[in-house]
Amino acid sequence: MHLDVFLEPAVDLPSLAKILDELGHLGRLDTIRGWGRRTQARLYEAAQGFHPITLDDFVPPATDPLHEVIHHGKNTLPSFSHFQKRFCKPTDAAAEDKAELLGYNHQTLMWATGPGYFVVHPSEASGEVDIDYLRTPKDKPTAWPPIQDNDHGLARLVYGGMVDVMRGVSQHVSIGRAKKKGTFMDAWFVLCREEPSA
């Protein structure tokens, strides 16, 4: 669905969020997959402080530990721009801090880059969340690939030293910008949460 009327000449985030909330999953997914680099960069700036995001936006509170929640993604790379980030709550035994989630990147080149495991926690900035590749989960759902750190091989080039800083757009949609070694990169991506299966 094209919602360009809410993006030009200025981003009308309240109206855009309302429409996204009213769309079903497939409508939201079709919408975000049409957002290119310029749109994502503008949305990221507009989203600052708009919809304070928490860990509950990534994994709903009623979800059991180690139950997968899939977020479909669209990044600003020229190719291989569709991917998934898969999240779950940790078991109590595996959580260093209860205010965290676990996850990995499910994408076409995973065989080469590794799964890109991460830990999710509240950001230093209020209302934002960090997807932190500097930390490696200690547990995972059985079906996920083997846990690897991001310090070796191609994983180091892709994920090493990286933190994605996330902002909220609507109830199911969030937007992130990559930061490496403390410096923001010109790389954005948008996520659309799929409701977890029972």
Rank of each mutant, 00 (worst) to 15 (best):
G36E: 12
G49R: 02
Q48L: 14
R28Q: 11
D30N: 09
A41K: 11
A46V: 00
R28W: 06
R38K: 12
R38V: 14
F50P: 14
I32M: 07
W35P: 08
L43V: 01
T31C: 15
T39R: 11
A46D: 07
Q48G: 08
W35T: 00
A41I: 01
R37Q: 10
L43R: 00
W35S: 08
G49L: 03
W35R: 03
G27A: 04
G49N: 09
T39I: 13
E45W: 02
R33K: 09
R42L: 15
Q40T: 00
D30H: 04
E45Q: 14
G27P: 09
R42D: 15
Q48C: 09
A47G: 09
P52Y: 00
G49W: 05
G34K: 02
T31S: 10
A41T: 02
G49E: 12
L43S: 04
W35L: 15
G34S: 06
A47P: 13
F50G: 08
D57I: 00
A41M: 09
L29C: 06
I32Y: 04
W35Q: 13
L55R: 05
G34I: 03
R42N: 14
P52W: 00
I32P: 13
G34D: 07
P52G: 02
I53D: 13
A47W: 01
L55P: 12
D57S: 13
R38C: 14
E45R: 08
A46S: 11
R28D: 06
I53C: 14
Q40D: 05
A41S: 10
T54V: 04
T39S: 12
D30V: 01
T54H: 08
L29W: 04
D30S: 14
R42S: 14
F58E: 08
T54Q: 10
E45N: 06
D30E: 12
R42C: 12
H51E: 09
A47D: 04
R28H: 02
L55M: 08
D56T: 02
A41Y: 01
D57G: 14
F58P: 11
P52C: 04
L43H: 03
R38F: 11
R28M: 07
G27V: 00
R33A: 03
